[in-house]
């Protein structure tokens, strides 16, 4: 198991180097002078220009520049935002909990709905249940989620008035951020109604962000279930006189879950990409909204640092999925 872990981590190193090369190159690929880009739109006087050029090391050879960049990155120095002047890492860490909270809720929604629905479709193969699940999930998979979010806002927020339109919590409540997770902070604040407000703000964004993962999970669960139900060990389980709930829910599902877990892991990238759109629609103050605002504000240091950090998050999540995969699949666990 330890060797398994070490190999997996070792495989991440080239990818990490590649991503840093990409973010390093980014600033230099953008047409125009990097110093002027980093200085922002207000311009700069020639003395300051020369000073910055030395400070950022743009006068050194590219290889040295890259070396310095890597050293900075490894020390957690990702530069400062042009707009807020705050360190990029600090900004990222302040906003990241909001994105985690949204992504987690979206994923929980996707799994809670997608898994049972996929199982039903697989077990009741060829019935109206199966066809509806497949039809709806393909529609969900084809959904432009930025439009889906707007549609849900029109229906539930504007027409029915059930849910708020944007933000993480009603402006009526104010308390200091402790964990960064609104659900927890609102409970800690002890203010009446704060938690309810936080939950109601989370519902629509979670549904929107969870739609595509839900569709993927439902389809994968169905096909995996179909395959597993034909296996000999399912027949053995029934021959033992086990009730169908146990045959399907334990013997079949346990095996069917193996590919589904992989797919769930792969959805993390999809979630982060979807978060950009979802956060924009719902004015959710997370990483996605921050990144897209950085693009519009030409805040290149923020963009550069943010992308590197997102890539690292995706890499770490993929690593944990690999480990989880080893845990739930005994055949993998013993091979290494």
């Amino acid at each position: 198991m330890i060797r398994f872990l070490v190999t997996k981590i070792a495989l991440l190193i080239p990818t990490f180097v590649g991503v840093t090369l990409l973010t390093f190159a980014m600033i230099r690929l953008i047409p125009g002078d990097p110093i002027l880009l980093l200085a922002g739109e207000r311009g700069i006087d020639p003395d300051r220009y020369a000073e910055l050029r030395t400070q950022y090391g743009f006068d050194k050879p590219l290889l040295i520049q890259y070396g310095n960049y890597i050293v900075d990155v490894l020390q957690g120095d990702l530069g400062r935002s042009i707009v807020t002047k705050k360190p990029v890492l600090t900004e990222f860490l302040t906003l990241f909990p909001a994105t985690i909270e949204l992504s987690l809720c979206a994923m929980i929604f996707a799994v809670l709905v997608g898994l049972p629905v996929g199982i039903i479709a697989g077990v009741r193969r060829g019935t109206i249940w199966d066809h509806s699940v497949m039809g709806v999930s393909l529609t969900g998979y084809s959904m432009p989620i930025f439009w889906w979010g707007l549609l849900l806002i029109i229906l539930f927020s504007v027409n029915l008035g059930w849910t708020p339109v944007s933000g993480r919590i009603s402006l009526l409540y104010y308390f200091d951020s402790v964990t960064g997770f609104m659900l927890i902070d609102s409970l800690l604040s002890g203010q009446e109604g704060a938690f309810r407000s936080a939950v109601s703000h989370l519902i629509l964004p979670s549904i929107v962000l969870g739609t595509i993962p839900l569709a993927v999970i439902a389809r994968m669960t169905r096909s995996s279930m179909l395959e597993v139900l034909n296996e000999d060990y399912v027949r053995t389980a029934r021959a033992k006189g086990l009730p169908p709930v146990r045959v399907i829910g334990l013997h079949a599902l346990r095996n069917a879950l193996i590919p589904v877990v992989t797919v769930i892991g792969l959805q993390v990238g999809v979630l982060l990409a979807g978060a950009i759109l979802t956060e924009t629609i719902f004015s959710w103050p997370g990483i996605g909204k921050w990144l897209i605002e950085s693009v519009h504000r030409r805040d290149y240091p923020a963009l550069q640092g943010g992308i590197l950090l997102v890539a690292i998050v995706v890499m770490l999540v993929n690593l944990s999925v690999d480990l989880l995969y080893g845990l739930i699949n005994p055949r993998i666990r013993h091979r290494r």
Binding site: D232, Y233, R235, T236, A237, A239, N255, P330
Partner: peptide, 16 residues
């Protein structure tokens, strides 16, 4: 009534 099947390896659940 109990039954023993032809393929022992696939007839046992690999996850348990």
């Amino acid at each position: 009534i109990a039954m023993v099947f032809q393929e022992p390896i696939t007839s046992l659940n690999p996850c348990f």
